[in-house]
Design a protein around this nucleic acid. Sequence first.
DNA 1: GCAAAATACCTCGTATAGCAATGTATATGG
DNA 2: CCATATACATTGCTATACGAGGTATTTTGC
Lengths: 129, 129
Amino acid sequence: MAIKRFPAPEADQPDRWEAQLRKGALEMAALASLWRGRLYGLEIIRFLEAQSRLVLAEGTIYPILNRLRTEALLTSEWVEADAGHPRKYYSLTDAGRERLRLMAAAWMDFSSGLTQLLEPVLESEEVIQ
Amino acid sequence: MAIKRFPAPEADQPDRWEAQLRKGALEMAALASLWRGRLYGLEIIRFLEAQSRLVLAEGTIYPILNRLRTEALLTSEWVEADAGHPRKYYSLTDAGRERLRLMAAAWMDFSSGLTQLLEPVLESEEVIQ
DNA sequence: GCAAAATACCTCGTATAGCAATGTATATGG
DNA sequence: CCATATACATTGCTATACGAGGTATTTTGC
């Protein structure tokens, strides 16, 4: 019997939409994680998990980082660690910093619009016994 | 010559990530549009465009509405208009109302986490000459 | 009356992107 | 040396938004 590499898609999963919610925000989050200084791949994952509720798999972050590097929004450099595996550190370029500012502004715009749309819903929640 | 039904995918489009940002929020927005009462398909599109910055195509909203109806989060009924084409009105079910409350709460959670992550970026923007 | 326009709902096909599950390389502890 | 830990990388599946069509009904112009 063959190994079932991919789990059966459970369409009834109530968390499906939540996963979708995060899509598109990930590039921005990856850039944002580098705002204060360079980090390496796994460090970015840990940072985002700690700072926000974003949990990224490795198979998610590396394609994103490569994409961003192709767009010259960040650079990478190998750094030999004193101990352990060498690490590839990522840093924002000026273009990356600029783009992140644009993204952040657009995010606030989008976010506030949606929050406003949800206001009646959120208000109703407060009234519940 | 054949009609080019699908436009060439312009990967360099800088707005690509913005489109991604909206993914996953659309189901929630569709449900939210019905919070105050029933609406029909095209009316939902116009409502969301007016209330938030969400612009949905018809090919987007109808699959979403069908998906939500399949999940029993909303119901639909044909209504013969006094004039014009009959309209299919969508209404929230109790389950839909409940789910929307959950979604709204999760959205606030997600949104505030990301906004917090972007705070340093947004602050830097204010300082710019 | 009948073509044209307007309104509304629906469907097909494609590109995109996250992510689970792998693989590879290096260093360290027993 | 083998097992474990750390780190980066890749492959392939899947879900989903959306452009470009289509159909049905009603109203308007002639």
